[in-house]
Computed example of a mutant assay.
Amino acid sequence: MFDGLIAWFQIVFVDQFDWWVVWGLAAQFMFMMRFVVQWVASERAKRSIVPIPFWFFSIGGGLMLLTYAIEQQDPVFILGQSLGLLIYLRNVWLIFAERRAAARPEGDAAT
């Protein structure tokens, strides 16, 4: 049993190691950083918040993971990252629309 586990680790972590694995690991790190950013911001504020960098890490990590999923031809991963990217982009759009509206002079209606 132990030999089988060692063989599995050899196949997964050594034999398959290539540029795409490095890309996938970097993508996963980028995606993970959004949670670190959110956690640090919430700890500083002493309440749960979602800072804007969270969404940029989401977009960057999501794009990187999507390219990895496409290269790996994984339909579950491709669909999941595609939907996530739409949500992240929409959130950034809403944030900047709110900022534009707040920056308009009082009484200046949007057309």
Rank of each mutant, 00 (worst) to 15 (best):
Q38F: 08
W19Q: 06
V50W: 09
I49V: 15
W23C: 10
G61M: 08
D15V: 02
L83Q: 05
Q72L: 15
V37G: 00
V21L: 07
L65V: 03
F56C: 04
Q38E: 11
R44I: 12
Y88A: 15
L83T: 12
A97E: 08
W39C: 07
Q73Y: 04
A110E: 13
Q10H: 10
G84C: 01
V76F: 13
R47T: 08
L79N: 13
D74S: 14
A69R: 11
A109N: 03
F77T: 09
K46G: 09
R100N: 08
A26C: 14
A97Q: 13
A101Q: 14
M64F: 08
W93F: 15
F9G: 04
A110Y: 11
G4C: 02
W55H: 11
V12L: 09
L85Y: 07
E71T: 10
A27Q: 04
V14N: 01
A109I: 06
V92C: 02
A110P: 03
M30F: 11
G24Y: 10
A26I: 15
E71M: 13
F54E: 00
P53Q: 12
G60P: 09
F13I: 12
L89F: 12
A41P: 00
Y68P: 00
S82R: 06
F13Q: 09
M33C: 13
M64W: 05
R104I: 03
L85D: 05
A110V: 13
Y68W: 13
V21Y: 03
V21S: 01
I11W: 03
I95R: 09
D74C: 05
R104S: 05
M33P: 02
M32Q: 08
S48T: 12
F96S: 06
I52M: 14
L89M: 14
R90E: 04
G84K: 00
L83D: 01
Q16Y: 06
T111D: 08
